[in-house]
Nucleic acid binder design. Structure first.
Length: 409
RNA sequence: GUCGGGGUAGUGUAGCCUGGUUAGCACACGGGACUGUGGAUCCCGUAGCCCGGGUUCAAAUCCCGGCCCCGACCCCA
């Protein structure tokens, strides 16, 4: 006998009550993005292998789902939402700018699964295309940060800037060819500590002490060169806008994020663990690299599943499965359907029993589902009434049908 | 790719070291006591030793191989 119950490695099933919270979280994110004026986009999960590997060389294939279709073409699953979006912009060369868009969807990476890391996971992106101004970076941070705040998660956005890092690297005379290696090591500062970073750096360790002079508050950041001054004042401007948006942020010179993707401000958001749940930055060259005109771009992404895993318990999310449970006494199905429809038309979510099981079972079922209001549809309907029962208090009363809606509101 | 810990009903586990009744328990699920009133209690029920080989009179237990899961490293555009 084959085992048909196996899941693909690194994927997950989302079942209630978690799935209910997850859907609610996604709804709040989407509502917030809309409030900030971002419009929804959706692009295919499948892209050509050519695109997916375009900015990482051959070794990047190791981290991707790539396979051949029946015609022998190499295709793969997207690993983020930014690259497909950039492809669309490179392809549609006359879209009116600026564009503010969001996209919520699954992405796939052939990582080795472990705590907080899956091969299939959901991202909720916002991006602004067509503005190089810091106010755009600030807004793109503010929208997802606000969404998180609305569910009770107050993160601190750690801010750095690729131009600043490069300016510092110039100043401390870090060889160009070793910079990726250096950045990759210091990026682990909060994970493995100073000692770990020194060890990791090896012969590059001599550059660490001069670099550490820049581990300060932003206003106190030394300005030994013109380039550093310029990067600093850009960050100060950005910080001012973040303050205006009410975002909690801090400058952190150890934030690096990736290697060849970003060209300006970069962001990571932490709550109380060194695991980022909201991150992104500015990437002004990507669309040009894909063959489009150069369009300045900046974006952020919520790691939806990771945020739920780490902080779902403390999120302020509705967990109940429906607003009202309609318990149906056998023989009264027709009127139960009519009543359920009426409630739904008034905006209530309704779980109507369809099993015909006895009332005690239906009440237990309602409770299990976390629904606290039960409308019992039975013989009272012959007098134009239903019984409304509150499962929390245990109280109930017969209510005329035309008063049902106001009784429930 | 490297390393560590594990696989016993749907979930969590006891049993394994020291092989030997019908593989025990809890939760969950279905039904009943209670055919129009949930949370409590009681009763009944469904459901399990990852796969293959070896040792043995006898394997969940010991040995070998495989598969899978979890976690750490590497990496994370």
């Amino acid at each position: 006998m084959m085992d048909f119950t196996k899941r693909v490695r690194g994927t997950r099933d989302f079942l209630p009550p978690f799935s209910v919270k997850r859907a609610e979280f996604l709804r709040i994110i989407e509502d917030t993005y809309r409030e900030f004026g971002f419009l929804p986009w959706d692009t295919p999960a499948l892209e050509t292998a050519e695109l997916l590997t375009s900015k990482g060389g051959e070794d990047i294939r190791e981290e991707l789902y790539i396979f051949k279709d029946k015609a022998g073409r190499e295709i793969g699953l997207r690993f983020d939402l930014t690259l497909p979006t950039a492809r669309v912009l490179a392809e549609n060369k006359t879209m009116p700018l600026p564009i503010k868009r969001y996209m919520i969807g699954k992405v796939w990476r052939y990582d080795r699964p472990q705590a907080g890391r899956f091969r299939e996971f959901t991202q909720a992106d916002v991006d602004i295309f067509g503005s190089e101004k810091p106010i755009a970076d600030a807004e793109v941070v503010a929208a997802p940060w606000t969404a998180l705040k609305r569910v009770g998660i107050q993160g601190t956005v750690q801010v750095n800037d690729r131009r600043l890092l490069d300016a510092i690297a110039d100043y401390i005379e870090l060889p160009e060819s070793r910079r990726d290696e250096f950045y990759r090591a210091i990026d682990k500062w909060y994970k493995i500590g100073e000692e770990g970073v020194r060890k990791e750096l090896g012969e590059l360790e001599k550059y660490l002490d001069p670099f550490l002079e820049f581990d300060t508050d932003l206003v106190e950041l030394p300005e030994p060169t013109e380039k550093i001054s310029a990067a600093k004042s850009a960050l100060l401007k950005l910080g001012e806008y973040l303050d205006d948006f009410g975002v909690r942020w801090t400058f952190n010179v150890f934030i690096v994020r990736g290697l060849d993707y970003y060209t300006g401000p970069i962001f990571e958001t932490f709550v109380d663990r060194p695991t980022s749940i909201l991150s992104g930055g500015r990437y002004d060259r990507l669309i040009g690299m894909l063959g489009g005109r150069e369009i300045p771009a900046t974006g952020m992404s919520i790691g939806v599943d990771r945020a739920l895993d780490l902080y779902g318990d403390s999120m302020d999310l509705r967990a109940r499965e429906a607003d009202v449970y309609v318990a149906v006494i056998p023989g009264y199905e027709d009127v139960a359907i009519q009543i359920s429809n009426k409630l739904r038309a008034a905006g209530k979510s309704v779980f109507m029993d369809v099993t015909g099981r006895k009332l005690g079972k239906q009440l237990a079922d309602a409770e299990r589902r976390g629904v606290k209001t039960v409308v019992i549809v039975g013989r009272e309907t012959e007098n134009g009434q239903v019984v409304v029962k509150d499962l929390d208090s245990g109280t109930q009363s017969a209510v005329p049908l035309d008063e049902l809606l106001q009784k429930l509101s």
